[in-house]
């Protein structure tokens, strides 16, 4: 073992320099070419930063499309899921409550039309997206709160739908923050 200590120490030192400094520096350098310089892409409205494109926000007002429930209340200083198991009675009661609350806020929606992701917490607690169905099911409420035609709002939703990758792979999604910003711009 003794014969190995010194070479192992020196080799470790060399690799600490390569891995912890040279390699990240190279990637950092390349990141400067990216549009946000690797700092995360911000979204601004009228010159004021209102969020990060990839980080979800909580929307509590009836005039905005809601995001999914979050176990960390969209605090991006941390992240987290509920980690509730599928048979946990306390958790199931909470889902029932969310369904009831959603029905109260959206009286025109039938229960079987409520997609489960609107009443279940995401993995990160920062999910920026909802499914197309989860957006459409909120259109009635938005239309009546804002006094805008349903068709107009529905069209807006359909326009910003993120289709599956190459039209073939994965689910289609709607970015809620993007949708709500466009909604505010709608006359």
């Amino acid at each position: 073992m003794k014969t190995h200590i010194l070479p192992a120490l020196r080799l470790s030192l060399v690799f600490i320099i390569i891995i912890a400094f040279v390699y990240p520096a190279a990637i950092y350098g390349i990141a400067q070419l990216q549009k946000d310089k690797g700092e995360g892409s911000k979204i601004s409205v009228k010159g004021k930063v209102v969020g990060f494109e990839l980080i979800g926000q909580s929307f509590t007002q009836a005039r905005y499309f809601q995001s999914r429930p979050s176990a960390v209340d969209y605090n991006g200083g941390g992240s987290g899921g509920s980690n509730k198991g599928p048979t946990n009675p306390e958790y199931l009661a909470q889902v029932e409550e969310r369904i009831a609350a959603f029905q109260k806020e959206n009286p025109t929606v039938n229960k079987p039309a409520i997609p489960s992701e609107l009443v279940t917490a995401s993995g990160s607690g920062l999910d920026p997206q909802i499914s197309l169905e989860a957006a459409l099911v909120q259109v009635d409420r938005i239309a009546s709160t804002r006094n805008i035609g349903k068709e107009k709002i529905k069209k807006l939703v359909m326009d910003i739908e993120n289709k599956p990758l190459f039209g073939l792979f994965g689910p289609s999604t709607i970015n809620v923050l993007d949708l709500n910003i466009r909604l505010d711009a709608l006359k």
Binding site: P86, P115, S116, S122, D127
Partner: peptide
Amino acid sequence: KITDMGISQIHGSMEGKETRFG
């Protein structure tokens, strides 16, 4: 248990999952 509540689970079990992955 969630199917029994009478809502739609077209995207499967979504607790703890991200919309963009499914």
